[in-house]
Design a protein around this nucleic acid. Structure first.
Lengths: 387, 387
DNA sequence: TGGCTCGTTGGTAACGTTATCAAGATCCAC
DNA sequence: GTGGATCTTGATAACGTTACCAACGAGCCA
């Protein structure tokens, strides 16, 4: 029991699992050229060759040339693993996002890699699929691999695993989502303010039935609607939504919130259900990519007229937002910059910065396009989809 | 001169560059718990502790428990770098794509990571931005880091750098694009056949002015139109296009091909120019994501009626293809499977497979939607965009 | 010319694992 | 009760770098 727990804690069981390959015949690893080989071939001492090849210490021009020639002749290539072992630096950043396939995270990852590459760092990618357990095991792996820094868009609601990383001397930056009490550098946008501003456009246009469609952490047992989202970003955006309603004097009972799973079709179902009500909403605010996609699926299925029947504002500007008709009004956020800043903070910490961890909030912008309009005088019932 | 060249060849100059950090004060690396520490604390020999922690060899239950308890107490965590050094395996795959931000590559990367994760492999990501030089330096880095395998969507037209990887014992799989004479495993779709099939829809519908919009390798000097694309995929799709034209008896002189750069706005300009001609095309085939986006931008700007004025077929099904009106007809390809298969092949090779490298061709499917129709009887001139 | 500094050089000890091997303990069948 | 096989155990040698240090020669100033 105890040993089982401990074993898992240490990652030992997993190590066993993947350390032993299932196939019987590991191919003979080709003997690689090492520094001693080069040194011998160049007729110099090992340490001298190492200095030339490693680009440190001093060496005469003549020696340098001899060593480099020998290296080229033998086809020498640095072994970064050995170098990492002694230097303690792997020149690697670990990145954990929910899903690279999601355009939001793809852009963020791009931002991270760009800045990282400039600093000579590589990026290892892990997808958590919004599952806390997956994230934790990924972080544990990254610790074992001694990455120099970690960018995490947390799906887990606690931060024990991240604390472990910090304790191991690995700086951690939270991306897109904050984690209360974690004391970590965090790069986010003002989700609450942005959501409030967006929803306020609705209230100002006379809308009173305003719904929010949001993706949440998937729950294993959930079939259609996942339970309350603990993801900070979602919570913040919902808070902004509530603030906007309150400011407009819309009663608390009129809140219309749909938590859907991390799947476009779930959001579609939720909106279909939402719009079938006699006093259906006349305005829809979607808090993420996936929710926006599913929402538009549903509205198109319903032949809803936008913004005649419903106004729509999406969070995050997508590449297709100007391709749909009407063009989608959105809250745009500097996603790539978010990732870039995260990487930048890491680089600074790796280089020794001990500045107090803080939250960096990047600005968002409401981009009005054509999917928003005044509340309709009369709410037209929408026909159920053919299916 | 010579030493300069050699130095770069060996990656030594770069190593120097990023090995020395620009900041003055590297923070004191926290002393980490190692196997000898655990062994001492548990009162067993070092080798014994190593066996328990590493999950190999044999050990009694009592010993195991003692060691694991000591490890947990001390907060021991495996050093994967040291393990890699002696085992020669890093349990890492290197992936080079043009740009993760591109939905196509994002999906492919997802496919790779999923399969890799299942095999206990991590994925290091590099973007080439379609630049051969960037790709080469990334590959060189991956060799130095001793990745266990390499997935490359080649932008470079030669394969010297990839040969070097293979010579170093690193299996390489080409993704999305083939490279003639490289003798490498390759995972692609039947680009030629798919393009031919798509364009044939046009010819069968009576179209004779059929244009192709394609993204190409960016050229440093190019401002608007980049020169001939050497990317295999593009070439193949163009060949398919030509075959379809020939089969329909459309004269060779009627070919309408626009190579645009790797940027949505370039494709837009190209299409704007294309459509301003008096005998403008009545059908447009776009060979990739970016080209499709820019093409639709242009057509929307022109207020072109699809498919009344122009029919459109795009290569690769995008998440928004059913959101635009009319819904976009596309050639869909199993992108994630492409990546997954690439990773799968690597896993097999890492486990010792010495099967002859071959090309794996995955099927595509033409998905008819609403953006295609019969050739218009009369070609209506399109109004120039307001701007 | 003596003494001193500085650039260059090479031997050797890390780094933290896994691999090898010999020795002792245990167990079983005969 | 004994021979042989099997299980445990720990000392020690890898792996391929970089770090450290002592030794050597050249150059310079007094």
């Amino acid at each position: 029991m105890a040993s089982n727990f401990i074993g898992r804690f240490l990652g030992v069981r997993r190590a066993v699992t993947y350390e032993r390959s299932p196939m019987p015949n590991p191919p003979p690893p080709p003997r690689r050229v090492t520094i001693p080989d080069v040194a011998r071939h160049a007729g110099v001492g090992q340490a001298t060759a190492a200095r030339v090849l490693g680009g440190y210490g001093s060496s005469s021009a003549a020696t340098r040339e001899r060593v480099l020639a020998a290296a080229a002749e033998l086809g020498y290539s640095t072994n970064a693993v050995a170098r990492s072992m002694i230097s303690g630096r792997t020149h690697t950043l670990g990145v954990v996002v929910a899903d690279v396939e999601n355009a939001y995270f793809a852009r963020a990852v791009r931002g991270v890699t760009d800045v990282a590459a400039k600093a000579g760092l590589h990026v290892v990618l892990a997808n958590s699929d919004e599952k806390g357990e997956t994230e934790k095991s990924a972080v544990q792996m990254f610790i074992e691999r001694r990455v120099d820094g970690l960018v995490v868009a947390p799906a887990a609601t606690d931060h024990e695993h991240l604390d472990k990383a910090v304790a191991a001397g690995i700086p951690v930056v939270l991306l897109d989502r904050a984690l209360s009490g974690a004391g970590l550098d965090t790069v986010v946008v003002d989700n609450r303010g942005a959501a409030k501003a967006a929803v306020t456009r609705f209230t100002e246009a006379g809308h009173t039935r305003i719904a929010v469609v949001t993706s949440a952490s998937p729950d294993e047992n959930a079939t259609q609607l996942a339970p309350g989202a603990d993801i900070w970003t979602t919570t913040e955006r919902l808070t902004g939504y509530r603030q906007a309603l309150r400011a407009a004097g819309i009663p608390r009972g009129a809140e219309l919130i749909r938590h859907t799973g991390y799947d476009r079709t779930w959001a579609r179902s939720a909106v279909l259900e939402l719009m079938s009500s006699p006093d259906r909403p006349t305005a829809l605010f979607t808090t993420d990519n996936v929710a926006t996609l599913g929402t538009l699926d549903a509205l198109l299925d319903l032949d809803a007229h936008i913004p005649g029947d419903v106004s729509v504002i999406g969070f995050d500007d997508a590449e297709w937002a100007t391709l749909v008709r009407p063009r989608l009004s959105v809250v745009s956020q500097p996603v790539q910059e978010l990732g870039g800043l995260a990487a930048d903070i890491l680089v600074r910490r790796i280089n020794g910065s001990t500045a107090r961890p803080r939250r960096h909030t990047l600005p968002t912008a409401y981009v009005p396009r054509e999917s928003t309009g005044p509340a309709p005088a009369r709410v037209r019932p929408l026909r159920a989809p053919g299916e």
